[in-house]
Design a protein around this nucleic acid. Structure first.
Lengths: 160, 160
DNA sequence: CTCGTTGCAAATCATTTGCAATGGA
DNA sequence: TCCATTGCAAATGATTTGCAACGAG
C-alpha cells in the first residue's frame, strides 16, 4: 500500500547508486550497510537511529545500534540523508534531501512533510501548513552550508 | 558597542514583560531567573545552556547549570525562546522568536541569522545566503506548531 | 508560613568509541 | 591475506531528576 512497484524500483535504483558511491570512495559493502540503506531510503517518515535498529533487529538479530548510527552518519556525509532535530533530543534522519518543509508537532513530536510546490513565497509555509490542519506557532528556516570563513579552507575537498 | 541605549531599554522592557508573565502564571521571580532572562534576551547569537551558565558564573558563583536549563525551557514554553539544534548535539537557544532564517555552518557549527526581508520567495533563501558569502548545501524549513490530531486536545490551554 | 525554586549530585538518555573478532575485496 | 567494519560494552556528553535547604510571596 505504501510503495508501488515503480516506487520500489526507484528505491532499488537509489540503493544501487549509493552502494556504488560507497564502493567508489573505498568503503566496503556489508550486508548490514545494504540492509540499513535499503530500509532507510524511500521512507516518507523521519526515523531515529533507534527506530531503524529496532525494525531491522527482526531480520538481523546481531545488528548493533552503533552500526546503524555509523551508516546513517555515512549517508549524511554523502548527502543522502539529512539530520533533523525535533523538539525531543533524539536525532531523526530524513532520506528526502531535496528542499522541503517540515511540520514539527510540539505536542507529539511527529514530523510531517509539506510539499514545497505549495510554498513559492516564504509566507506560504504557514498558510500551506494550515491547509493541512496544522496550527503553526513558530517557523525557522535553516540553510546548511559553509560560511565565508570555512569556505576558504575547503577548496574542492574530495568531491568526485 | 553591541547594544545602544535604545537597545538596552528594549531589552529591559522585554525582561519586564517576561517577568510579569511569569508572575501571572504563578511562577516565582528569583534573582537567578531574572539574571538568566536578562542575560539571554537581546542577544544576537545562539548560546547553549552551558554558554549562559559559564558567563553568568562570574557574577553568580552559585548558579547551577540545571537552573539555566530550567529557565530556558520555561522561556521556550512561553514562546520567548526557540530551541535550535545545530549539527552538533548541544541545543542552542535563540531569543529571536520571529520568523527568520538560520545559516548553519557545517564546518564550524556557527549559526548566523539571515534577515527575512531579503527572502520573500522560498528560493531566495539560498540566494540571499550566497550574497552573504555563505555557500548553501541543503535547506530545511521548519514550522513548529500543533498537528491536526494534537490540536483537538488543546482547546485554549492556559493562554492569558 | 508555604510551597515553588535552587544547588548539588546522581541518574538518564542519546551517541560515540575502544577493541578483539569477522569477513569483504 | 589485509584492513575496514562489526558487535559488544564501556565511555562520553548533554540534559534531567531527586532531594534537602532556601527564600519569594
Amino acid at each position: 500500500m505504501a510503495v508501488g512497484e515503480a516506487g520500489r524500483n526507484r528505491v532499488e535504483e537509489r540503493v544501487s547508486r549509493i552502494v556504488q558511491q560507497l564502493r567508489a570512495s573505498g568503503h566496503r559493502i556489508t550486508p548490514q550497510r545494504v540492509a540499513i540503506i535499503r530500509h532507510f531510503v524511500g521512507r516518507t517518515d523521519h526515523p531515529s537511529a533507534e527506530d531503524i535498529h529496532t525494525e531491522l533487529l527482526a531480520d538481523y538479530p546481531m545488528m548493533a545500534l552503533s552500526t546503524v548510527y555509523g551508516t546513517l552518519r555515512l549517508l549524511a556525509e554523502m548527502g543522502e540523508a539529512v539530520e533533523v532535530s525535533p523538539a525531543t533530543h533524539e536525532t531523526r534522519f530524513d532520506p528526502d534531501v531535496g528542499d522541503h518543509c517540515h511540520l514539527t508537532c510540539l505536542a507529539c513530536n511527529r514530523i510531517m512533510d509539506l510539499p514545497m510546490d505549495a510554498c513559492v513565497h516564504a509566507e506560504d509555509f504557514a498558510t500551506a501548513a494550515q491547509h493541512q490542519g496544522f496550527q503553526p506557532v513558530r517557523q525557522v528556516y535553516q540553510v546548511f552550508g559553509y560560511c565565508a570563513d570555512c569556505r576558504r579552507d575547503r577548496e574542492a575537498p574530495s568531491r568526485a
